[in-house]
Design a binder for these strands. Structure first.
Lengths: 230, 230
DNA sequence: GCAGGCATTATTGTCAACATTATTGTATGC
DNA sequence: GCATACAATAATGTTGACAATAATGCCTGC
């Protein structure tokens, strides 16, 4: 009955809208190239176009959507080069992160990381894809956060968002990328104070993620004609 | 006469507004802590508040301004830790950049870098502080751009913007940071194919910039009471 | 005389209507 | 029959007015 009128209670903030779109992209419900019309989204989320616009603008900065002036927004279509670029950067940054982490990690930090991994296992058990996507990236981000460098965190946040998009596009297998097992192994090494070991496992972990992608010559399926006919 | 009505000809885009504010911050005309009222800025640039808002949002992402919900925006006040953090990251990134550059640099790239440095010299000769600020950062950015990695460029763009703010806050001396001489020396090494040498000079260059700052215990002068009385 | 609550004010956040632009469909001239 | 120009349409970009919110000053009660 009351669902016909706009519900004030479900008024999403722009961040919430952005996150929902992000999750939809990462979960492959929104394919690259999909046009994101402002009014359509405004209708979906029951908010004004202005707020949708904020969300889209934020997503553009994260590289998840591409906005062309006067032409609207669509889900970004990362190239293979973009993908390799992201993983190159992640390797460079995250190896440094774990190597530096062993010097500053405390017991409580380890515990919080373990708790995080436990939640990942819960998500795996519950077969909750959306939660797992969020948590998998969150683990890597949590590692960076422990270093206390604000924009190291910021950069990695960016890279993880782009990784979500890339895996959504190029992932072939049904299995998910970030296994809790490897995360646990990383924490094990960190707990043992083994900087090199942690870095090695992280490198291997990233390699696994990248290897599960088809970054060869495959043409990406897309709702957009452009990429389908080129 | 006609200056009473809004002039369509001088309608700045949000990027232009953002850049003007950025330059004002880097040029120390806007001190950290200064409140940036939307309507005030809209009046200054003769645009609507919406566009000012876009510009401020963009500047927030670059870390130049801080936006508190329902409280407005003000010029960020980077801490000493933030400053060290920025230079740490710049060192990590830019050393990699120059080291990798020697393998991909072409003659035309060198020429374009030289041309850039020539413009820096012009700015020095003309004593044009604003141009020099822009060009100095631009050189470092140009180096990263030559690697062709979009978000390596993006990250460095971020770091350079923050560096502008930091130098604006903590710089004591009247002299400017990025001398064209050292830029030339970097290009010399790159041209000679000396990766280690280029990295060494870049490291020295960044050290010089950081050393010209007072990152010790000095309290920053601010228009805001908060930082003046703590 | 002072503390706490209330009204005022200034500023940001939000929205809906309007203007502008790009695209698509149609008609017309060659 | 085809190409070009034009009109209709649908989307984005912009604006100004309105609502919500936080800071400030005031006033009353103790």
């Amino acid at each position: 009955m009351d669902e016909t009128r706009p519900r004030k209670t479900s008024s999403h903030t722009s961040s919430e809208i952005g996150e929902k779109i992000w999750l939809a992209i990462a979960d492959r419900r929104l394919r690259p190239g999909t046009r994101l019309k402002e009014e359509e989204l405004a209708d979906v989320f029951q908010v004004s176009r202005a707020r949708v616009r904020q969300a889209l603008s934020s997503l553009e900065r994260d590289g998840l959507v591409t906005i062309q002036p006067n032409r609207g927004a669509c889900v970004s279509e990362p190239t293979v080069d973009d993908a390799r670029d992201v993983f190159h950067a992640r390797r460079a940054i995250e190896l440094r992160v774990v190597a530096r982490l062993v010097k500053v990690l405390r017991h409580e930090d380890i515990a919080s990381l373990r708790a995080h991994i436990a939640r990942e296992r819960d998500a795996v058990a519950a077969n909750s894809a959306v939660d797992l996507i969020r948590l998998s990236g969150g683990f890597h981000l949590a590692l960076a956060d422990l270093l206390g460098s604000d924009f190291l965190s910021g950069i990695l946040r960016d890279l993880i968002a782009r990784t979500s998009l890339i895996t959504a596009v190029y992932r072939d297998t049904a299995r998910f990328d970030c296994g809790p097992q490897e995360h646990d192994a990383i924490v094990d090494s960190l707990e043992a104070g083994d900087a090199e070991g942690a870095a090695a496992i992280m490198a291997e972990h990233l390699t696994h993620i990248e290897r599960d992608l088809n970054l060869d010559d495959r043409v990406v399926a897309s709702t957009d004609l452009r990429s389908a006919l080129t």
